Amino acid sequence: MFLLEVGNLKENFAKYFSVEAAVTEELKHEVFRVRHAVYCEELGYENTNPDHQETDSYDARSLHIALRAQAHGRIVGCVRLVQCDPDTPEKLLPFEKLCTDAIDRSIIDPAQVDRRAIVEISRLAVLSDYRKRKGDSGSPMAISEEDMGTRDQPRFPYIPVGLYLGLLVAAELHGIEHLFTLTEARLARHLSALGFRIHLIGRAIEHRGKRVPSVIYRTELMAHLPPFMQPLYDQMKQDMSRQYACEPA
């Protein structure tokens, strides 16, 4: 994969999108509507419902991130960080229940790290109109070499980069170090190529396709974050710090 020439990523990203901490009920409802459109209506992972909002019991203890399109001001993508239950931190996160026998605990054992400093990345969703290769793999978000363009006509995957930078900001602001996820191996490879170090920590399982348990070590990733991403990260951190400070009690 060739090195992308992205110019000023911060300014270019701001032309098209913004990333926000979804802390208000209104913004959370917009996130849930995106999830319903993708997970229920398009992919059929969950049942549709009259409210056109996809929610579950983990949302109450999750950090929600929203991607807004500047062209019309609507939310077009989202992701969440599921936190451990503060009252019973030993309770398993969703991926731990699915991967009980698939995690290689010689690499890392989620049960043995500080449960207050771990989350699970989940419910990553982007509306189909904003995914470059519509209908490609039945995935809520996909990246391939095609999405990078060619040497003569490079592209940049603003949406996944924006969402992943946003979740990293949320993790830093909440003292989170380990970010676990179930991911397609191909998506992990392409995100790693963009600078997001994702470590596979076990064997693949069948969960809406082949998924591999993985982890991001936030401190390690930030130490190797590509320099051209740093200004955008810093801007998101400034914006989201303000949003979390205004979070309703």
Rank of each mutant, 00 (worst) to 15 (best):
G135I: 04
A71I: 12
V126K: 00
N12Q: 13
M148G: 01
G175V: 10
H190V: 02
K134M: 14
Q235P: 07
K132Q: 13
R33Q: 14
G162Q: 00
A223D: 13
A66G: 04
S192D: 08
Q230Y: 04
K237L: 06
I216R: 01
E54I: 08
L200E: 00
P89M: 14
T24N: 11
E25D: 15
R80A: 03
L200V: 07
F2N: 12
Y130D: 00
K97A: 13
G202S: 10
T88V: 15
T219H: 09
T181W: 04
S139A: 14
E206P: 00
D109F: 11
L168A: 03
M148I: 10
A223C: 11
V82F: 03
L63D: 07
R74V: 08
K210C: 05
V23C: 09
D51N: 13
L9R: 01
G7L: 11
F180T: 00
L232Q: 00
M229K: 02
I103H: 02
Y45W: 15
D59W: 06
S214E: 00
I107E: 10
R186A: 12
T150N: 15
E11Q: 12
I205V: 15
Y16G: 08
Q153N: 15
P213E: 07
Y58H: 12
S241W: 08
N49R: 14
A193I: 11
G166L: 03
D147Q: 07
L168E: 01
D152V: 15
A245C: 15
G73V: 07
R116Y: 11
D129W: 10
I201T: 03
I159D: 02
E41H: 10
S214H: 02
F17K: 04
L182W: 01
P94Y: 10
E54N: 10
F196N: 00
